[in-house]
C-alpha cells in the first residue's frame, strides 16, 4: 500500500504533527513499508470471526456515585505551561 505526500499531509494534520517537506517524503516511504507489512493480514479470511475487543471477556464494573475527589488545582497546575486565574491558557480560539 503506497502513501503519497498528500496522504501524509492529511494524516499529519489529523494527528496534529508539524512535519517539514523533506520529512513528508521520508514518512511516506516508511509508512508505506509498514502498510506493506500490515497487508499480510489479507492472507486470512475473517468473514465469520468476531473481533476481539479485550483479551478477557469481562464486563464493565460500576462505581458508586460519590463525589470524593477534593480540589487539588494548585498541585495539578504547578507544572502547567501557562495558566491565569486558574484557567489553562491557549492561543485565542475563534469560533
Amino acid at each position: 500500500m503506497s502513501l503519497d505526500r498528500s496522504d501524509v499531509e492529511k494524516i499529519a494534520h489529523l494527528a496534529r504533527l508539524a512535519i517539514s517537506p523533506d520529512q513528508t517524503e521520508r514518512y511516506a516511504a516508511e509508512l508505506s513499508n509498514i502498510l506493506d507489512l500490515v497487508a499480510q493480514m489479507d492472507s486470512v479470511n475473517t468473514d465469520d470471526v468476531e473481533p476481539m475487543a479485550h483479551p478477557l471477556h469481562m464486563v464493565q464494573r460500576l462505581r458508586p456515585d460519590q463525589a470524593t475527589e477534593p480540589d487539588r488545582r494548585a498541585e495539578y497546575q504547578a507544572g502547567a505551561p501557562l495558566t491565569e486565574g486558574g484557567l489553562y491558557l491557549v492561543p485565542k480560539v475563534i469560533e
Partner: peptide, 29 residues
C-alpha cells in the same frame, strides 16, 4: 510520530474495517 501516524491512518474514515477491525478479528483467531 511514525506510530501515531500509522495509527491515525488505520482508524481514519474508510480504513477502519480493512485495518483495525480486521486486525481485531485475526487477534481472536
Amino acid at each position: 510520530q511514525r506510530r501515531v501516524m500509522i495509527g491515525t491512518y488505520v482508524l481514519s474514515a474508510g480504513y477502519y474495517d480493512a485495518y483495525y477491525l480486521k486486525a481485531q478479528k485475526i487477534r481472536q483467531l
